[in-house]
Amino acid sequence: MALISCVSAASAEGDAKAGAQKIKTLQCISCHGRDGVSKLPEAPNLAGQGKDYLTIALTAYRSGARKNDMMSVMAGKLTDADIADLAAYYSAIEIHVTPPPKP
Rank of each mutant, 00 (worst) to 15 (best):
A2V: 07
A2Y: 03
L3H: 04
S5C: 02
C6V: 00
S8V: 00
A9R: 14
A9E: 14
A12L: 07
G14T: 01
A18H: 00
G19K: 03
A20R: 05
Q21R: 13
K22W: 01
K22N: 12
K22A: 14
K22G: 07
I23Y: 06
I23Q: 09
K24R: 06
L26M: 15
Q27G: 07
Q27S: 13
C28E: 09
C28W: 12
C28R: 05
S30V: 13
C31M: 09
H32E: 02
H32C: 01
G33R: 11
G33K: 11
G33L: 14
D35F: 09
D35L: 13
G36T: 01
V37F: 15
V37Q: 13
S38D: 07
L40M: 10
P41F: 05
E42M: 14
A43H: 08
P44C: 13
N45L: 08
N45G: 07
L46Q: 08
A47H: 01
A47S: 09
Q49K: 15
G50H: 04
K51D: 00
T55P: 13
I56N: 06
I56F: 00
T59K: 02
T59R: 01
Y61N: 06
R62E: 04
R62M: 06
R62A: 11
G64L: 05
G64S: 06
G64I: 03
G64C: 08
A65Q: 14
R66G: 02
K67P: 02
M70H: 09
S72C: 10
S72F: 10
V73L: 15
G76M: 06
K77G: 14
K77Q: 15
L78C: 09
I83F: 02
I83S: 01
A84T: 05
D85C: 03
D85Y: 01
D85T: 02
A87L: 04
A87V: 01
Y89M: 05
S91Q: 04
S91E: 03
I93L: 12
E94F: 00
H96L: 14
T98F: 13
T98H: 13
T98R: 13
P100Y: 10
P100L: 13
P101Q: 12
K102L: 12
